[in-house]
């Protein structure tokens, strides 16, 4: 099981590295433009995870992070979940704020097409000034940490103090940028979450194999002892019978 997960991890890591580079363009622009967050506006939290379990605490961690962020925003937030596991976990506590839930994604490394469809659905929810994408960032083969991307709306980008560093020709470049930034961040978030999940699953599978090995050991000792006891009992019976006859 560990080997199966390991080969998948390599693939997932490749997808993640490519998406990280893809997202860097956007990140660099945002760093230079420095758009400001709109205060007192409702925030949309997009929690990225997947449908499948058996991978340790990964879903619980991201749900915890989402709950914490929700508290920090004083409840003025709506939640969109990607993946069934986080949906069931968040539905118990924040069912009222859940606006949309996606499932069936996260089985393979994400594709841009898939992400564009999700971004489209999210845009249909209406205009949110702040969007935050929560995901498990892949740190190394054995660790991950819940992190977030901020996606800015059209207005925030157009009002950004650093925007004057760039020369812009088109009129609606802010909208294009904000749309692309949403899809971009979602893609990277999903790729990172996918890699984290696979690596967590690999560790979980490794532990499961180890535990199963330990159990097999202790049970085979128990089996041998019981068998020995049965043989001894039978021998005692036979010998007692023989000696009483003679």
């Amino acid at each position: 099981m560990k080997i199966v997960a390991s080969t998948r991890l390599n693939k997932a890591q490749r997808a993640m590295t490519a998406s990280r580079v893809f997202n860097k363009t956007d990140a660099e622009f945002m760093e230079n433009a420095q758009p400001e967050k709109a205060e007192d506006e409702k925030t949309l939290l997009v929690v990225v995870s997947s449908d499948k379990g058996l991978c340790g605490s990964i879903h619980t961690q991201i749900s915890k992070a989402a709950r914490k962020r929700f508290e920090e925003l004083n409840g003025s937030a709506d939640i969109v979940t990607i993946g069934d596991k986080v949906r069931t976990q968040l539905q118990r506590t924040h069912a009222d704020s859940m606006k949309l839930a996606f499932n069936g994604v996260g089985k393979e490394a994400p594709t841009f097409h898939e992400v564009a469809l999700i971004a489209d659905e999210i845009k249909k929810l209406g205009q949110y000034e702040n969007i935050e994408i929560l995901y498990n960032k892949f740190v190394s083969g054995v660790s991950f940490e819940p992190s977030k991307f901020a996606v800015f709306a059209n207005d925030a980008i157009e009002k950004a103090p650093g925007l004057s560093k760039y020369e812009l020709e088109g009129e609606d470049i802010g909208e294009t940028l904000s749309d692309l930034s949403l899809a971009n961040s979602l893609l990277t978030a999903q790729a990172e979450a996918y890699a984290s999940e696979i690596s967590a699953r690999r560790n979980a599978m490794d532990n499961a194999s180890k535990n199963a090995g330990d159990m097999i050991n202790s049970y085979s000792i128990l089996y041998n002892r019981t068998r020995q006891a049965v043989i001894t009992n039978e021998l005692v019976d036979i010998i007692t019978g023989a000696s009483s006859l003679g």
Binding site: T17, S19, V21, K24, T25, T111, F112, V115, G170
Partner: peptide
């Protein structure tokens, strides 16, 4: 130049002479 696709990186900070872009403008 960095030229990135969602699933692949074609150029990563490689030094080039010139790049011609098809822009909407």
């Amino acid at each position: 130049l960095s030229l990135a696709l969602p699933h692949q990186t074609l150029y990563s900070e490689s030094e080039v002479e010139q790049v011609n872009l098809p822009s909407i403008n």
